[in-house]
Structures are given as C-alpha cells and as structure tokens.
C-alpha cells in the first residue's frame, strides 16, 4: 500500500513539476473558467435573487468546460515525448499509472478552483467560502479527474482529440455536475447539512463507481 502511494505520488509530483515549469494547464483552466464567469456576469443582470438561482450552475459549468481544456493538455505532454510508454515500461500495475495521472489532474483542477471560486464569490456576491463547499468541491474534482483522465487517455491518439474529449466527458459527468450545482445551491442558500448531504451522496456514489470502472478500462486502453 505504502509503495503504491509512493508511485502515485511520484507520477503526480512529476506532473506538478512540469506544470510549474510550463504553466500550461492551471493558467488555461483558470483563465477559461474566469472568462465564462465574466461573460455570464455581463450577460445576466446579477442581483441577490438570481445570483443564488443561476450562480451555482454557472460556476460548475465554467469549471467543467475549463477542466476539459486542462485535461487535454495534461495528456498531450505525455504524447509529445512518448513518455506514457516510459511509464508503461516500469514494473507497476497500469492502475497505478491511472491513479498517478488522476492525482495530477486533481491537483490542477483544484489549483484552478482556488483561483476561480473566490472570484466567483465576489462577482456573484455569494457566501460560498464555507467548509461544506470544500466537500462539494473536493468530491466534484475527484469525479472530474477520474473520468477526465480516462477519456483523455482514450482520445490521446485521436486526431480530433480536442473535440472528442468534451463530447465524451461532458455527457458522462452530467450527474456529477447536477449534484455539484444542487449542493452548491444549498450552500449559498444557507441550508442545513442533511439537505446538502442528499446531493453529496450522489457525488460520492458517482466518484466510487467511476474510479473503479475507469481504472479497469484504463488498463485495457494502455494494453491496446
């Protein structure tokens, strides 16, 4: 177990190191998400009533769309140097490569959210900086990373991968986006934890199911 965690950490840390040098993914994800937020702020006349109504949906849609941009880039790096094959030469199971790449993507999306969510809170004047929001954000990011890593690997060698990835990713994450939007709505409306937890449960179930399924399918993708 400890050795497996060390391998996952090594792959995730490598992605983070490359990102600190290139700043491709976090910048792209954050700027894209902020642009979507800004466009909606101008498009809709935001007031205290409709901010609570539309804000959560706009937030998670912007993060989901921006996430796709980052996921595309994260795997493109492995393709450039053919380094995914170097990882495949190591005596580790393919699940650990999947978990390592997923961990890297999780870190990128989380870093982007650290920038985006406070700006969202200011633009929409909503109190989202609460611990419940931390749970919602964590679970949603895990789900995005789990599915995004799988589909990014699937489309890595497809010529039109920039188009294919959102076409595969967005329909599958729709239940997770629903759970995130609903629970964020409860957070901004100051609802009680049991009300938020109803939707949190859906996110947990989604994350567990897709981590297991994705890890299994990822092995088949690499073997092919």
């Amino acid at each position: 177990m400890r050795e497996s965690l060390a391998v996952i950490w090594a792959i995730g840390r490598k992605d983070l190191l490359l990102e600190t040098r290139n700043k491709d993914v976090i910048v792209a994800v954050s700027v894209f998400a902020l642009l979507v937020l800004m466009i909606f702020t101008f498009a809709i006349d935001i007031n205290q009533v409709n901010a609570k109504l539309t804000g959560p949906g706009i937030l998670w849609a912007s993060i989901a769309f921006a996430g796709v941009t980052g996921l595309n880039r994260a795997f493109a790096l492995e393709l450039e140097g053919n380094t995914l094959e170097a990882l495949m030469l190591a005596p580790i199971s393919r699940d650990l490569i999947y978990a390592g790449k997923m961990f890297g993507n999780f870190l990128f999306i989380t870093a982007a959210q650290i920038i985006v969510i406070p700006i969202f809170a200011v633009l929409f004047n909503l109190a989202v900086l609460r611990w419940e929001m931390l749970v919602v954000s964590l679970l949603t990011t895990i789900g995005f990373s789990a599915i995004g890593t799988l589909f990014a690997a699937m489309t890595i060698r497809v010529r039109a991968r920039e188009v294919m990835l959102p076409l595969l990713f967005l329909p599958v994450v729709t239940p997770l986006i629903m759970a995130a939007v609903e629970s964020t709505s409860h957070v901004v409306n100051d609802s009680s934890w049991p009300e938020i937890y109803q939707w949190i449960q859906l996110a947990i179930a989604f994350d567990i199911a897709f981590i297991v399924i994705s890890a299994f399918i990822f092995q088949q993708i690499l073997e092919d």
Binding site: E3, L18, E80, G81, N82, T83, A86, A90, P91
Partner: peptide, 23 residues
C-alpha cells in the same frame, strides 16, 4: 527508438522519477 524522457525535466529528475517507479 525515442528516448522517452520528459524534456522539461533535467536528466537527474528523469532518472529519479524512474528510480522511484522501480522502487
């Protein structure tokens, strides 16, 4: 055919990564 190294990492960083993967 291809060296399969991370080009934005140093040689030492590449070797360290793979040493860790090989435990």
């Amino acid at each position: 055919h291809s060296p399969m190294l991370y080009t934005d990492m140093s040689v030492r960083e590449n070797l360290t990564l793979f040493a860790e993967l090989y435990r």
